[in-house]
């Protein structure tokens, strides 16, 4: 410790050296810049308060990012939805209409085209994804966002949702089904 720039125990120098890195990390995970700025601030404060815990085994940057990662999850936790399981079941029951009684596809998945590269550079697709996620019950969109955007493990996700593994998979399944259906209708327009 103490030789590399920003390694000293001074939160102001952390801000100078890693502020932008932390900001970009946060910005990629939350929707608006104000929230991202707040998260950077909370991270630096928390880091300073627990500075004794920094062992020097990881780099300072890794340590700060680790704290930030937790702050992002906390942020999503506060958005935590209050919908009953029954409401969620009712909402998701519409998915059953995609299949016939023999559980074969009734509403056939469209061909979205082969190469995502052509599409994913478009900011609009991301906007469409966000719009679809905003439309579905929070518990689904939250689970999906944490898993696919935040990259949390399923175990962490189940703890976060405070539910058993099986239910966790059901929630993710429903979120994926709702998202792909929503995009199909609103973005890909593969309906005949």
């Amino acid at each position: 410790m103490g030789t590399e720039p920003g390694q000293e125990i001074d939160p102001i120098s952390w801000l100078d050296h890693y502020g932008d890195t932390l900001y970009r990390f946060a910005r990629a995970r939350v929707k608006d810049s104000f929230t991202a700025e707040d998260l950077v601030q909370e991270t630096l404060l928390a880091a300073y308060r627990s500075r004794k815990k920094f062992s020097g085994r990881s780099t300072l940057k890794t340590w700060l990012i680790g704290i930030l990662r937790h702050k992002v999850v906390d942020y999503y936790r506060k958005l935590k939805p209050e919908q009953s399981e029954e409401d969620l079941d009712a909402y998701a029951s519409g998915l059953d209409n995609l299949f016939d009684v023999k559980e074969k596809w009734l509403v056939k998945p469209g061909d979205w085209g082969g190469d995502p590269k052509n599409v994913y550079e478009r900011k609009e697709l991301m906007d469409a994804i966000h719009a679809c996620l905003d439309d579905m019950p929070k518990r689904f969109s939250l689970a999906y966002t944490l898993r696919e955007l935040q990259g949390v493990t399923t175990q962490e996700l189940c703890e976060f949702l405070q539910t058993g593994k099986n239910n966790c998979w059901v929630i993710l399944y429903r979120a994926r089904m709702l998202l792909r259906r929503c995009l199909e209708v609103n973005w890909f327009n593969t309906e005949k």
Binding site: K108, P109, P116, Y120, R180, L183
Partner: peptide, 13 residues
């Protein structure tokens, strides 16, 4: 197609 769609979404995100 369904599988491709899910993988597509993961890649895109």
């Amino acid at each position: 197609r369904y599988k491709k769609q899910l993988l597509f979404l993961r890649t895109v995100l």
